[in-house]
Each structure stands twice: as C-alpha cells, then as structure tokens.
C-alpha cells in the first residue's frame, strides 16, 4: 500500500546536474537499454541518482507496508465476526510480507536492511502519509482496505512496468495479492453502505474523514518538475502524481456515488470538456506537516515499531549463526 509523492530533488537544481559527473558513454548505453524496454539488474552500471531515487522509493514503499499494518491491525481484536477477523489477519500478514519483498528488492541496490530499519525508527525515512491517521471505527478499516489499497494498486501497477528488475518482480507478486484486499475492502464497505441507518452513517463518517488523506495519497502535483522528466525517462517514475490521482478518481468516485455515499468536496465532478476530474486542491501544507512528523499518529506508529525491533532483538541475536556472513541478495 503506497502512494508516490515523495521523490525529493531540489527543483532549483538544473536538470543536467543529476548526471553531471557520470560517464557519458555508460549513461547513453544505460538510457538506450531502458528506452528499448530492457530491465536494469542489480549488478548493472547505473547513474548514482538512479540508484539513490530507487533506494528512496522502494524503501519508503517497504516502510509503508510495515507501518500500514498498524492502523488496520487496530481492528483485528474487534472485527465483527470470525470470517472478517480471519480475512483482516490474512490481509495484515500480506502487508508485512510485502514489506519483506520490498526490503529485499531495495537491498539489491546496496542498502542493508539494518540501515533501512535504523532510518525508519530514527524518523529519517518517510512512509505513506495515510498511515499516520487513526482508524477510529471498524468502518475506517473498511475504507482503508478498499480505497487505500485501490490507490496503491493504481500506483503499483504503474511502477511494475518500471525499469528496475527486482522492484518489478516484487510488485508483480504484490499486485496479485492486493486483488484480494480490494475485494475484501469493497465487500466491507458495501455491507455497511447497504445496511442499517447506523451502519450507513458509520461508513459515511469514515469516508468523509479519510477523503483528504486519500487525495493526498498520490502526492503533490509534479508535472512541472524537470526532474520528473528525467525520472520518467529512466522509468523510475511511471506516471505523474496528478495522472495517477485522475485514474483513481475515474475508477472509484462513480463506485462511491453509486452506493449513495457522498464525498466532502463540492467541486468534485468530471469535466465533460477535458474528460478529467475537477476537485478542490488538497491542503498540501497539512500534507507537509504530517509527513514531517506532526500527524495524529506519527509518534505512536514509530514507538510501536521501535518496541517491536527492540523486543525481537535478543531472539535474532540468539539464533544468529556464528559463521553468518552478509552479502547483497542477488535479485
């Protein structure tokens, strides 16, 4: 479960500064390989900026999966009914598994798993903003499972066609599992939306609260950035944040309205002339605040993660074999 908002390159940096000290012959061969639709594998030569942006992106994605298990896990103990409890546990376990796949993909670029976890618990690495919000009711977990996973699928399907082999392979595996999450989430939302007035009110309330974070999910508009062009040429980024947001709105707003639910944006409508969705620009100042640690649940999420790392430490130390040796995973 991950959006695509946090590629941070200083926009005032001139576009060619990203590759200023790269060997032009190697760079040309690298770009030709990508243009031809070939994948880049871990042992290949790659520009420093390509490696850096991929590490940042895959690592954030991995952290998002592992932190994303926390808001949803909130309702495992009180899931309404045994089947839903089993399904929610399976979903949360999937998300943690996705983190494992993504950490492995990122490791092939040369950052160890220990360094990634250290950067997460230090608050140095980011993860998807949506997981810094609380799941106040069971309906929140339904909205997360349907719409956040839907957004993640839009992003992940796009990225699975990117240029870095290990990331693509991990995403193929992840996308296959997400389809169960989406169906499960949709089923839960539909159940509440077609239920008693209290149930309808509950899901409407959750949807209204989650709409701003969902609009933030794909990140701020990045169409104007010259660096986006380079990252798109390298197939690190496969679609602009705005395009992914549009794709999401186009697929899911009609389904939401079809249930008779409303969204808290009176400007939201499909523009028949452009074929695109009009909406009120999300408050990006709030987005910035939350991503920089000031959201409602940032402190709790990281504290839980630190506790888990610390309590498992002695176990890992006890089972570590004496002749263990770390080498970068192959792919």
């Amino acid at each position: 479960m991950y959006g695509n908002g946090y590629i941070e390159i200083d926009p005032t940096k001139p576009v060619n500064s990203l590759v200023a000290d790269e060997d032009p012959v190697k760079l040309a061969a690298f770009e030709a390989r990508i243009a031809a639709g070939d994948k880049i594998e871990p042992q290949d030569w790659m520009p420093k900026e390509y490696r850096k942006q991929l590490i940042r992106m895959i690592e954030q994605h991995a952290h998002s999966e592992i932190i994303g298990a926390l808001p949803e896990g909130t309702w495992i103990t009180r899931a309404p009914g045994f089947r839903r409890k089993l399904a929610l546990m399976a979903k949360v376990q999937d998300e943690v598994g996705h983190a494992q796949l993504l950490y492995s993909a990122c490791e092939t670029l040369g950052k160890s798993r220990e360094d990634m976890i250290n950067d997460l618990i230090d608050g140095k690495s980011k993860y998807s903003n949506v997981f810094n919000y609380p799941a106040l009711t069971w309906a929140d977990s339904a909205v997360i499972a349907w719409l956040i996973d839907a957004g993640a699928i839009v992003n992940q399907i796009a990225n699975s066609k990117g240029s870095y082999g290990p990331y693509c392979r991990a995403l193929d595996r992840i996308c296959a599992e997400e389809s169960f999450h989406l169906k499960y989430g949709h089923d839960n939302v539909v159940f509440l939306a077609t239920g008693t007035p209290v149930q309808r009110a509950m899901v409407q309330d959750a949807l209204t609260r989650w709409w701003p974070p969902i609009m933030h999910f794909f990140g701020p508009s990045d169409k104007l950035s010259v660096h986006t062009e380079t990252l798109m040429k390298w197939k690190v980024k496969m679609a602009s944040n705005d395009d992914m947001r549009q794709q999401f709105l186009n697929m899911y707003v009609p389904k939401i309205w079809d249930l008779g639910l409303t969204l808290p944006d009176t400007n939201l409508k499909k523009n028949e002339t452009t074929g695109k969705w009009d909406y009120t620009e999300p408050d990006w100042e709030v987005f910035k605040q939350v991503i920089n640690g000031n959201g409602p649940c940032n402190a709790e999420r990281l504290a839980v993660r630190r506790m888990a790392e610390e309590k498992g430490r002695w176990v890992r130390r006890a089972i570590l074999s004496k002749d263990a040796q770390y080498v970068t995973p192959l792919s």
Binding site: R113, E114, I117, A303, R306, R316, L320, Y326, P329
Partner: peptide, 15 residues
Amino acid sequence: EAKIGHQENLDQLQT
C-alpha cells in the same frame, strides 16, 4: 519517547 540503539550488522541475519 523510548529510544533504542541502532541495529548492528547481521541483526537481520544472513540471506
């Protein structure tokens, strides 16, 4: 607010 020490090399075992 509890702080924890950094993970050392091989904390995450071998692959």
